[in-house]
């Protein structure tokens, strides 16, 4: 392995950092709006974990993780599709970068953006958190592990979407019909125990559900499924998707015709 991929990682990080207004500030504000609207209308009306956690406190980790996931996806997918459409992807196809190096650089940069935005959302929403919100925080390492794995998965999905899409609207379709439903139906805004059995069952097929549930476990020590199960599902998904992506890159699918 040469150090070429570190330059690619640095370039990818710089790329979103240079437009931090859109790539960091805007999603933080979006998450804040969600928090204000949902916590204001639902606090005291929705019971989560049998009333052991207030709704706003429950919502905050959900919104943080949702931001981590969406921004990780946005970073790798938009970078790749822009490079493909403007043609400057050749600058990374010409050098001797291996599929693993390209994969690593794009996914780590996506994780970087996801975690920075997630961190931003966390700091801003803390302001609105109920007193004693952080007094607990029993398992921060679980939280961190799920944030890292979740952003890696979404960064990888973004890479797959970017490789597959040939136009911006195809990418938007991927985002609207795959990523958005999976995030919204993952329990960001509710605990799946409040869903009818059918939807509860269906949620268990959604890997995003495990990411958010495991992430939240770190905050409250409470979760819908045991965190080790979530870790297994999320870790397995990350591994599977990574292998698929590496195979696509190896084959040159849609990138090296």
């Amino acid at each position: 392995m040469s150090s070429g991929w570190l330059t690619l990682l640095y370039k990818e990080l710089l790329r979103f950092w240079k437009v931090a207004f859109q790539t960091i500030l805007a999603p933080v504000i979006t998450a804040l709006l969600y928090l204000l609207i949902f916590s204001h209308t639902l606090e005291g009306r929705v019971s989560v974990y049998d009333g052991r956690v207030g709704y706003t406190a429950f919502l905050i980790p959900g919104l943080v993780m949702m931001s981590v996931l969406q921004n990780a996806f946005a970073n790798s997918s938009s970078s790749l599709i822009q490079s493909k459409i403007t043609g400057n992807l050749i600058f990374i196809l010409l050098p001797p970068l291996s599929p693993l190096e390209i994969f690593g650089a794009y996914v780590l940069a996506a994780m970087g953006r996801g975690l920075v935005v997630g961190g931003g959302v966390f700091l801003v929403t803390l302001w609105f958190a109920p007193p004693g919100f952080l007094a607990g925080f029993p398992h921060p390492f679980w939280t961190l592990a799920f944030a890292c794995l979740g952003s890696a998965i979404l960064g990888t999905l973004g890479l797959i979407a970017g490789i597959w899409a040939e136009k911006f609207d195809q990418l938007a379709a991927f985002q609207n019909f795959v990523i958005l439903p999976l995030t919204f139906l993952s329990g960001v805004f509710y605990s799946i125990h409040s869903l009818p059995p059918f939807w509860q069952g269906l949620s268990r097929f959604n890997p995003f559900f495990y990411m958010i549930d495991g992430f939240r476990y770190g905050f409250f020590g409470l979760s819908d499924v045991p965190p080790a199960t979530s870790l297994l599902v999320v870790g397995g998904s990350a591994l599977g998707l990574s292998l698929v992506t590496l195979l696509l890159l190896q084959r040159g699918y849609k990138l090296r015709q």
């Binding site: 040469s2 070429g4 690619l8 370039k11 710089l14 490079s83 403007t86 400057n88 050098p95």
Partner: peptide, 22 residues
């Protein structure tokens, strides 16, 4: 084709390209 990355300056462009080659 006349391709370029609009995010960067001339020097950054050349530096990155060298960097990709390690």
């Amino acid at each position: 084709e006349l391709v370029f990355d609009p995010f960067f300056t001339v020097r950054e462009t050349l530096r990155f390209q060298a960097g990709y080659f390690g």
